Simulated scan of single mutants.
Amino acid sequence: MSLANHLEELQRKHGDIERALDEAMLHPSVDDLEIVTLKRRKLALKDEIEKLRAQPTQH
């Protein structure tokens, strides 16, 4: 998988988690632990995306 494809996939997953988090926060019945878990997963993906973007391009 190319770097660009990998970044696209990570960004898609980040967006999916963001939408799930927004949905979960609209429902008061959702467990706080689930919200924290989603936030951690979203942050981990963001960190991985930023790390990949910071890598020098390899030719």
Rank of each mutant, 00 (worst) to 15 (best):
L10W: 03
D16N: 06
R12W: 03
A20E: 14
E23Q: 12
E18D: 15
S29H: 11
N5A: 12
L43V: 09
K39A: 04
E50D: 15
R40Y: 07
E8D: 12
Q11H: 09
R40H: 14
K51I: 08
L3N: 09
K13T: 10
A44E: 15
K46M: 06
Q55T: 07
L38T: 02
H27I: 01
L52M: 14
E18M: 08
R12G: 07
E48T: 06
R12A: 14
E23V: 07
A44N: 13
K39V: 01
G15V: 00
A44G: 08
L38S: 03
L52S: 12
M25C: 04
A4Q: 10
D16G: 00
D32N: 11
A54N: 10
E50L: 15
I49Y: 05
E23N: 11
D16M: 12
A20W: 05
I17E: 03
R19G: 00
K13F: 08
I49D: 02
K13Q: 15
D32F: 07
H59M: 10
A54H: 03
V30Y: 02
K51E: 15
R40Q: 15
L21T: 06
P56V: 10
Q11G: 04
A44M: 14
I35V: 15
D31R: 13
I35D: 04
R41S: 12
T37F: 08
A20I: 01
R40E: 13
K51Q: 15
L21I: 07
V30K: 05
R12D: 12
Q55W: 03
K42H: 10
L10V: 01
K46V: 01
Q11S: 13
T57I: 10
T57M: 11
E8C: 01
M1I: 02
G15N: 13
R19V: 10
A44D: 15
E34F: 05
R53S: 04
E23L: 10
